[in-house]
Simulated assay, not measured.
Amino acid sequence: MQDATTVLVADDDEDIAGLMRDYLEAGGYRVSVAHDGLTALDAVGPHLSCVLLDVDMPGLTGFEVLRRIRETSDVPVLLLTALGEDRDKLRGLGLGADDYIVKSASPAEVVARVHAVLRRSRRSATDDPGEELLDYGRLVIDVHAHEVRIDGAAQPFTAREFELLEHLARHPRRIITREQLFDRFWGEYGDRHTLTVHISRVREKIEEDPARPRHIVTVRGVGYRFEGERVTATARGDDG
């Protein structure tokens, strides 16, 4: 049972919100419901473990709510979308959504997707961060500060983009399959296209030419390999 876990369902369609609430409560979650963007934003706080967020709501759209949430919080957000609305999905992922759920999803899938994103979130929080500075010259990943710098300038990264880049950069020259990445960051359920979108967005932020990536290289038919030569602590002058 997930007694201490609270999920916010934000959807202006009361029937859909009620259905999502019933699914999740049957799965053992506590559920809060909001029917407009402002109410949803007011309901976001440290007690929440996950947000199901409709993209079309009065007051503030789901996209605006998501943008404001990401200014202060890394709480997992799953977008509620209509079937086939790919533009909404891509925009939401770009703003920092963890994934999306089609409103026609079965009760079992809704509960499974929420459970998967929470499991991943808890695992990330307890993982040993290891080295705190991954220095690849013009690309520096400061794990402690949760910051990516390109040529010394900090770049905006969502929590999921940062985790994906960090994981790849910790394993240079190692091929990591798409299935391994998807299982680690999204779990069993979800659209595999989500990984492709995240890889593309990370490349746009770190590569000099995203069409010809030098750091995140595609291994055709398999997955991805991170390329780059680490700058040692001695080379940085950190040896005291």
Rank of each mutant, 00 (worst) to 15 (best):
I101E: 07
L181W: 10
D151A: 12
A40F: 02
R236Y: 05
G130H: 06
A97S: 05
H215A: 08
R236D: 09
T81F: 06
L80C: 04
L133Q: 09
T177F: 09
V75Y: 03
H215K: 07
A125K: 10
V55Y: 04
R174N: 13
E166Y: 03
E208N: 12
D42A: 14
K103A: 08
P58Y: 01
T39S: 14
R87T: 14
A112H: 10
G228W: 05
M20G: 00
V55M: 08
D11Y: 02
A97N: 04
L38D: 14
A159W: 11
V33P: 06
F182Q: 13
I216A: 07
A154I: 00
T158A: 07
R68C: 05
G37I: 01
E179T: 14
V140A: 13
T61W: 09
K103N: 01
H146A: 13
V110Q: 02
E14K: 15
E229S: 13
D238V: 07
T177Q: 05
V110E: 04
G62M: 00
V31M: 08
D13N: 13
V65E: 03
G27S: 07
C50E: 05
G137F: 08
S106G: 12
A17N: 02
E166I: 08
D151Q: 13
I206G: 02
D22S: 15
D3V: 14
Q155M: 15
S73L: 10
V33C: 00
H215T: 11
L133H: 10
I216S: 07
E85G: 02
R201L: 14
V110F: 02
R70N: 01
